[in-house]
């Protein structure tokens, strides 16, 4: 066991449509240490989302090795992938993907239900998480009655439910205005730091680059060698 929470090497992925094969990821390798906040950036079509899907055990790579939390996951079956996702990974989606008919509390509780936590315990832990994202007072509110920023914080609480080791966030600020986006990222960063979670964020939003511990640029399906330029807001980009 070492300090790398995610270790990928030689990852390849191509999409096949009829006779045409489109390579999306080529020989991608990366390491993310425990507790690190890594940003994946790059233009549209560079393979960011595909890489996040593979890191999130939603897609399997065509070849290459991927170890997450000391478990080799690249050859997992879909059932094994699902079990690994619910036990080890938390997701924050671009459009939040909250369950519209449920309250904020129930949206968090559902992640506990998936791993079989009993109702009382899941309620207690969900309320604690909502408190940590500053939404304890909105626990009983239907998510459709919450602002976009509040919804994103519910999504953060849900991603942290069940104490996953890794949080994967897909464009977490894309549906938010500048202020709400920065607030949501602050909450994500602080929570993950205090809970020692490893975070991988896919984003286009250069305003939040300063919050990354490290930034990797993807270009044409490969990790670009050059460093990401500093942004006017940058304070601590690696």
């Amino acid at each position: 066991m070492d300090d790398a929470c995610i270790r990928a090497s030689g990852l390849n992925k191509a999409y096949v449509t009829g006779d045409s094969v489109t390579p999306v990821l080529q020989e991608v390798g990366l390491e993310v240490t425990r507790g690190e906040c890594l940003f994946l950036v790059g233009p549209s079509g560079s393979g960011k989302t595909t890489l996040l899907s593979i890191l999130g055990c939603i897609l399997s790579p065509d070849s290459g090795a991927l170890t997450i939390c000391d478990t080799e996951v690249s050859a997992f079956s879909s059932t094994e992938q699902a079990r690994f996702r619910r036990e080890k990974l938390g997701f924050v989606f671009q459009k939040f993907h909250l369950f519209a008919a449920l309250s904020a509390l129930e949206n968090v509780q559902i992640a506990y239900a998936l791993i079989g936590t009993n109702k009382l315990e899941s309620r207690r832990q969900s309320l604690e998480l909502l408190d940590r994202v500053g939404l304890a007072h909105k626990a009983g509110s239907q998510v459709r009655h919450l602002s976009m920023g509040q919804r994103q914080r519910v999504a953060l609480a849900r991603a942290l439910a069940g104490n996953p080791e890794v949080i994967l966030a897909d464009e977490p600020t894309a549906s938010l205005d500048a202020e709400a986006g920065m607030n949501a990222m602050h909450v994500l960063k602080e929570l993950c730091r205090s809970l020692n979670k490893t975070v991988v964020v896919v984003t286009h939003d250069s305003r939040i680059f300063p919050m990354a511990d490290r930034i990797l640029r993807l270009s044409n399906g490969r990790i670009a060698p050059e460093p990401v330029p500093e942004t006017p807001y940058s304070t601590s980009a690696a």
């Binding site: 999130g56 939603i58 059932t79 699902a82 079990r83 690994f84 996702r85 619910r86 036990e87 990974l89 997701f91 989606f93 993907h97 369950f99 519209a100 559902i110 992640a111 998936l114 791993i115 849900r158």
Partner: peptide, 16 residues
């Protein structure tokens, strides 16, 4: 469908 896809992304298996 999107909500079921979310459930599956979160790790829900076929039995759930």
């Amino acid at each position: 469908l999107a909500e079921f896809a979310t459930l599956k992304a979160m790790g829900a298996d076929d039995s759930q």
